[in-house]
């Protein structure tokens, strides 16, 4: 029996797995990006000179994505891997480090863009924990792409690395795209100006709007999950403090994200004594066609439009 058993299992197990399509190599050098947002940025910056592939699928939460064996192997064919870094890709860090040890150039773009510590939770919490947080590199906020000014610098850095490691000169297309990113910055500045100064305050589900808020003069009053990652949990005291804060400040909208569940934000909205809306913004990933977040520029525009509409 044993003689036929093992082949039978192998056939049964593998039968269904065959026939998945191979990536098409078109001869252009391959650049891999971890997030859909970085993928779009690299793609636009590189013009037609490179083949760009993205590890994470659309809508994936970048904090806890794990790749397949083929994707991890594909990393090793890339002339450059562009990662966000600053601890964003929690499920990928080992795989990126192993690829790097195998000699694949990996840039963690966030680390090069002056990452800032995050300041989250209710204001009461700030005083006691803040000073030791700031010296701790583990508590830097990874959401650097929320600042278009930082991303325009990222375009330049990526273009520089591409000409160095891949020997591909993308300076023309990168310069054009950099202009578009800076135009986005002006556009957002103008849009945010429509919001009265005393209403430029946000409550978000996890701490993902820090750079955005800094750049455009908004204040993050609090976050539902008291961390810069979606994987942490809220404590009842922090939750209660947040309910008080919302009522005191008269906050009528909580901003969630399309890559995470809004259960906690919904619960918070219900606890408050008046009508509170939960609005989901595209932040952690680009969206499907028709979502208004198909590209980085559109994602930022859509987010800003929703923020302005709901804060005005």
């Amino acid at each position: 029996m044993k003689r036929i058993l093992i082949p039978a299992i192998i056939v049964a197990v593998l039968g269904s797995a065959c026939g998945a399509a191979d990536e098409v190599d078109d001869g252009r050098p391959l650049v891999m990006a971890t997030t859909t947002i970085l993928g779009d940025i690299v793609d636009k910056a590189a013009g037609d000179a490179l083949q760009v592939e993205v590890l994470m699928p659309i809508g994936a939460d970048p904090h806890d994505f794990s790749p397949s064996a083929r994707q991890a192997s594909r990393l090793r064919e890339a002339v450059l891997v562009v990662a966000n870094g600053v601890g964003l890709e929690e499920g990928l860090s080992d795989i990126l480090a192993a690829a790097e040890a195998d000699g694949v150039p990996v840039i963690r773009i966030g680390d090069l863009l002056d990452p800032q510590p995050y300041v989250a939770g209710s204001p009461e919490e700030h005083g006691e924990d803040n000073h030791d947080r700031e010296t701790d590199s583990r508590t830097l906020d990874p959401h650097v792409w929320m600042d278009p000014v930082r991303m325009s610098a990222a375009v330049e850095i990526i273009a520089g690395h591409l000409s160095e490691t891949a020997g591909v000169d993308v300076s023309d297309s990168a310069a054009v795209y950099q202009g578009e990113v800076l135009a986005l910055h002006d556009e957002i500045t103008t849009l945010i100006d429509e919001v009265p100064v005393d209403r430029r305050k946000m409550v978000t589900s996890h701490f993902s709007y820090g750079y955005y808020a800094d750049r455009y003069g908004l204040e993050i009053l609090g976050t539902v999950i008291p961390a810069a990652t979606t994987a942490a949990e809220a404590s009842p005291a922090a939750f209660a403090a947040l309910v008080d804060l919302l009522e005191r400040e008269g906050v009528s909208v909580i901003f969630g994200s399309t890559t995470e569940s809004t259960t906690l934000a919904d619960a918070l909205a219900e606890e408050v004594g008046y009508q509170v809306k939960v609005v989901t913004l595209p932040t952690g990933s680009l969206g499907e066609g028709g979502s208004g977040a198909e590209t980085y520029l559109d994602m930022m525009r859509t987010s800003t439009r929703l923020i302005v509409e709901n804060l005005k």
Partner: peptide, 11 residues
Amino acid sequence: RLPSFSSSLST
């Protein structure tokens, strides 16, 4: 209670 749930831990 950890301020950030860092990569080496989730690994």
